[in-house]
Amino acid sequence: MTLALVQDDAKLTEAARMASPLAVRGLTVSYGQTPAIFSVDVTVRAGAMTAIVGPNGAGKSTLLKAALGVITPLAGTVAMLGQPLDRMRDRIAYVPQRASVDWDFPTRVIDVVLMGMYRQLGLLGRVRATHRAQAMACLDRVGMTDFATRQIGQLSGGQQQRVFLARALAQEADLYVLDEPFAGVDAATEKAIIAVLKSLRDAGRTVVAVHHDLATVPDYFDDVVLLNTQVVAAGPVAHVFTEDNLQATYGGRLTTARADPESVAG
């Protein structure tokens, strides 16, 4: 390979980074002395659905949280369209793991969805009828309008996940980041969620999700990042989601991962 070609490559990746709604470079996070993720480079393609896949403890959730600044990384930079993330917060929607909050918290379904508009409302802006209508429309997209005034603790796991997705929809963001959206939900909810995510993608939005079911990756996603502390491979599912790459990501655990998708969650 000539030097000129290498430079071309570098220019291309730089261009891809500038256009990417989530470009992560050299990201390292460590709990104590062992890194959870090490020097991770990921350039998410705009308008695509990207899965982050890897074995237990591979650092999938850590990657998302560090990329969004929920935890502080040891090293690395994160950019959206070439800008530092902090300037682009209003364009990012986040769906955390369902188990990360206390569902006995005194709040109703509609109030949770309205939380998605807090940035837009500011500190003192009044919640008007238009905001409520917008929140109800988001609930409608996930099939939860009948539950609007329920206390959130009365919902099933799948319903809770739908409410979290509705809150993200209310943000009207360009980038949707989801942490294990299909963990512990019923089949109907999984179908409903993937339909909403695909409609977002078809509307030109970008979706990034931690995913644990290898069998559904090709059906659900366009791109995939195979992660095991470091990035093993990343790119379009057709090129990257190969037997060899999976073997390299999961090692001896691949057969178990295939046999029991739930065992890879986390």
């Binding site: 949280k65 969004l68 955390p96 909050v101 918290f105 939380m115 940035r119 809150r167 943000q171």
Partner: peptide, 10 residues
Amino acid sequence: FDPGYAQATG
């Protein structure tokens, strides 16, 4: 309610 979400949304 959701400190992680609060942080992620700025």
